[in-house]
Design a protein around this nucleic acid. Structure first.
Lengths: 213, 213
DNA sequence: CATATATGGTTGCCATAGCAACAAAAAGAG
DNA sequence: CTCTTTTTGTTGCTATGGCAACCATATATG
């Protein structure tokens, strides 16, 4: 339980305080094997999930049945917070274990409507967490709105440079995931990257990019 | 102040309880004339804004300097909640008065970190409000990810039908705003709507649509 | 009522990017 | 080290949709 002190949801709380709060809300741990579904797209849930060990992905299925990975969660990442917070909404994603994975589920209503004095702090943390998820999504939307592949790539790389610092940096996504993120064809992405390199705008090897804007 | 009892932020609270909470947090009312800027894109703010009277728009400027309207706020709508909640982020939008407009600003930190027992309820409401904004944005992202104009339009109309109920319904956006929302050219949208009507998929007059899917 | 100003529709042109299919390189597995 | 499998790059074809320019209709304004 020590890792929960590092969790954004419990930021500012000691181990014993966290245990104290958890005692007022129903919670349970569950293990999942590789590929097991943790939350189905369309489910309505009232739990917050915290990845205690292992990894999980958030996937989405397009109308055409194509599978798109929309998020990647490692230790201490939270899911279901926005979904529970919205109350009554269906999950837009399927959450699936990658390798073996251990998850702590906490009853949302009991956690939130708890009269425990420290629950207040948890709510504040939750607001910050959800707000930041909103902004991450907002940034992606800005990129998706751009019309050309080149402008999308540039916008993404400028963003990453700003986050990573320095004109040379590495990105977290492989070509497939990057193409999904930008909302373009993988081949179109590769093609445009080549052109941009030829035009002297960027250089790259694997996931390491240099931006000469 | 009576209208605040209808506000999502103060849901479940009486007029006197709201007044009580407000007394613990710095707040001020301000009027804006038509076209006046309420929040500049890039601003870092620590206030929640509530539209008491009039209307305001959230605008965004693309790298090319084009202006896009991303939201429309009427009475009792809240803005700045997600921005304040994320702490330290720059506003992605410019908020501008449409006609004369009266806004109540509430200090975010004092409201959230208030020890007032009812502040807890406000936080719960805020989580719900922000979560729903997240989902509205998420829905739009799904649509933006689609490749063809037709699939975007269909996805949007199916969504609206579901919300409005019935196969004939009216939409809130005019052609310009709809095109922005879908991330396509206005002319391309008009063209595709004509084709879809010719193909017998839909019918429409002005903002009234019928979906024959 | 006439004029101005949004708002919506149409169309030709053509660059862009989707699609498909394949090649090359890199990473894993035996 | 060889054989798979994954990841990335390449390329031809073609439909799509951006762009621009214009017309039509509706709504506001004096």
């Amino acid at each position: 339980m020590k890792i929960l002190t590092e969790n954004t949801l419990f930021k500012g709380l000691s181990e014993s305080q966290i245990a104290d709060i958890l005692s007022t809300a129903y919670h349970s741990e569950k293990s999942f094997r590789d590929g097991e579904i943790i939350v189905h797209q369309g489910d309505i849930i009232n739990n917050i999930g915290i990845v205690l060990a292992g990894n999980a992905t958030g996937k989405k299925y397009t109308p055409e049945g194509e599978e798109i990975i929309v998020s990647y969660m490692d230790t201490n990442k939270i899911f279901g917070d926005v979904l529970s917070g919205a109350i009554g909404f269906a999950s837009p994603v399927t959450v699936q274990a990658v390798g073996s994975c251990r998850v702590l589920f906490i009853d949302y209503n009991q956690l939130l409507y708890s009269r425990h004095p420290l629950a207040h702090r948890v709510l504040q943390n939750m607001i910050q967490s959800i707000s930041r998820k909103y902004f991450a999504q907002n940034k992606r939307m800005d990129i998706l709105m751009l019309k050309s592949v080149r402008s999308k790539v540039l916008s993404y790389l400028e963003w990453q440079r700003q986050i990573k610092g320095g004109k040379t940096f590495s990105i977290d996504l492989d070509r497939r995931l990057l193409a999904d993120f930008l909302g373009v064809e993988r081949s179109a992405l590769s093609r445009e990257l080549s052109r941009m390199k030829a035009d002297g705008l960027i250089d790259y090897h694997k996931n390491n990019f240099t931006l000469f804007v």
